[in-house]
Write a protein that binds this DNA or RNA. Structure first.
Length: 496
RNA sequence: GCUCGUGUGGUGUAGUUCGGUCCAUCAUGACGGACUCUCGAUCCGUCGACCCGGGUUCAAAUCCCGGCACGAGCACCA
């Protein structure tokens, strides 16, 4: 054995120490041709972007950057009834996108302004005998689909279909009475693909184009046409849309187009939020459960921004998770950990005394000023100078006979008075945060707590408190200054 | 019911294409310690996983077969 080792050392020393496997970092390569990548992010503008959407923004913009490609932001606003577009949401989404991606989308389009394109393709499809107007009711058609039977409308002639189509687009046919289907095959093993619906009638006005159109495409049709029009090369979508890929591929075959490369991801849940949807949030806002889209309890990007999350933390989170088809459940802790790493070196420290009690210093000689560092590791040079008097505040729950007032002195507390024992740290008594009366301002710390929002009353250090800034409050955590007024400073909790 | 997809530590991920370099990577977490005038940061250490059962093979997280579990689609929503 010894001899073998010696011999190996002489001609192949690397064989003796094996290398540990390394984790491959970064996004996997996109499939197919990547010479000119065009991606798309297609939200429904029925609200601002949420944590769920952020994955799409991050992944698409990251791939666009990797391949020097483009991202099309497309508003899928073709439903005026169930998830009607919110007129303000278009701008919100662009704002949210820019905040997250760090740049504007390369192309911005609204499906509602592209209606002529979709209607033309629908008419073309019908006149080529590949689509038909179906007057069956939903339940009737469901039976045909289940039993693999053709519905009677399938046999209508092209000219009959074109007449029916004319009636649909002119508004003569009422909502719910007809739908345009793609003529696939009712014998297909996958029931989702059997003569799938492409366009339906909607007389509810659209917030942007009003009553201009009576017939609107469904997602699978609109998206299929538009992806081709925009030259999309890769579609990154949830795996719940796998059947969309299959439906649309059938249509692409008919039109003689090449389908983009589809890539799927699984469903994401966040421990702290569970499942949520934009329309669900909207109804909770309307019923008064939440104060608005920026309510700190909400997983909207606006709420995250308001609380002080750096968009970089979201980018890191989604890059780390990457693209897998697994259904996952992530914890906010992971996001917070990314955010802390970004924030810790660049945030100044301050003192926040929650539930304060007042103590009087009994010594005759009290220093006029106390200096605390802006950052303990010197990442931010300089210090905070505190004016001193004979009144100080500490947290009621820190009350103990001997404590150390951080960055100041070891003290002895009896009743409501306090005596300085040593400015130098003399033993291992607990270190607590505190404030002299001269530096204390009334403050409220708003802490989202599940369904509730707790308002913690306290005192905040009155040293260059800037509205909009994030500070790390010692022994508390990161919080953002939301507003500063004469009477009160409002802080919004971020995380530990 | 039909169709589709996914199963690696508490959580997330690498490795699976082309079996060996994997007693399985990295992050997060938990626990312990060092350091520190924050319960922050930093540093060190520990914990913990290949869904199950067969098969092929000298060798299986990786290939084959069969189970099981979970998720999704079958909307005139996106």
């Amino acid at each position: 054995m010894e001899a073998v080792i010696q011999e190996l050392e002489s001609f192949a020393p690397e064989a003796l120490s094996r290398e540990k496997h390394k984790k491959i970092e970064g996004l996997k390569d996109l499939p197919g041709s990547t010479s000119k990548v065009v991606l798309r992010f297609a939200p429904n503008p029925n609200g601002p972007l949420t944590l769920g959407h952020s994955r799409g923004v991050v992944i698409n913009s990251a791939y666009a950057e990797k391949y020097e490609g483009k991202v099309v932001l497309r508003f899928d606003d073709t439903d005026t009834r169930i998830k009607p577009p919110l007129i303000e949401a278009y701008d919100w989404i662009i704002e949210d996108y820019e905040w997250l991606a760090g740049k504007s989308p390369d192309v911005i389009i609204k499906a509602s302004e592209r209606m002529p394109v979709y209607l033309d393709h629908a008419e073309k499809m019908i006149s080529e005998g590949y689509g038909y107007v179906c007057r069956c009711h939903v339940e009737e058609f469901r039976k045909f689909r289940e039993q693999k039977k053709n519905c009677p409308c399938r046999e209508n002639t092209i000219s009959d279909n074109l007449d029916e189509w004319g009636a649909m687009i002119s508004g003569k046919t009422s909502e719910g009475e007809a739908v345009v289907r793609v003529k696939t095959n009712m014998n297909l093993p996958n029931p989702a693909l059997r003569d799938w619906p492409a366009l339906r009638i909607q007389h509810t006005p659209h917030p942007l184009v009003g009553k201009k159109y009576n017939v609107w495409p469904l997602l699978d049709f609109q998206s299929a046409i538009e992806d081709h029009e925009q030259g999309i090369t890769h579609i990154i979508r949830g795996k719940d849309l796998m059947d969309s890929t299959r439906k649309q591929s059938i249509l692409y075959d008919h039109f003689g187009w090449n389908y983009p490369e589809p890539i799927y991801w699984g469903r994401v849940k966040v421990h702290e939020f569970g499942g949520f949807s934009t329309s669900g949030i909207l109804s909770s806002i309307n019923s008064g459960v939440f104060s608005g889209w920026e309510d700190p309890r909400l997983p909207t990007l606006r709420a995250f921004r308001r609380r002080g999350f750096d968009s970089q933390s979201l980018r890191e989170l989604w890059r780390e998770i990457g693209l897998t088809q697994k259904d996952i459940s992530v914890s906010m802790q992971t996001l917070e950990s990314f955010n802390s790493k970004i924030l810790d070196p660049i945030t100044e420290r301050r003192s926040f005394v929650q539930g304060p009690i007042k103590l009087q210093i009994s010594d005759e000689e009290i220093p006029q000023e106390v200096y605390c560092p802006l950052h303990p590791d010197g990442e931010i040079p300089g210090s905070r100078g505190w004016k001193m008097g004979n009144i100080v505040y500490i947290q009621a729950d820190d009350l103990a006979p001997s404590v150390r007032l951080k960055d100041f002195a070891d003290v002895k507390i009896t009743e409501t008075s306090l005596k300085i024992e040593s400015e130098k740290r003399s033993d291992d008594r607990p270190i607590i945060n505190w404030l002299p009366e001269q530096m204390a301002r009334n403050a409220i710390l708003v802490v989202p707590d599940g369904e509730k929002v707790n308002e913690v009353a306290g005192l905040v250090e009155d040293f260059n408190i800037e509205e909009g800034s994030i500070y790390q409050f010692e022994r508390v955590g990161f919080a953002k200054v939301e507003s500063v007024s004469e009477e009160i400073v409002r802080l919004i909790w971020l995380h530990k």
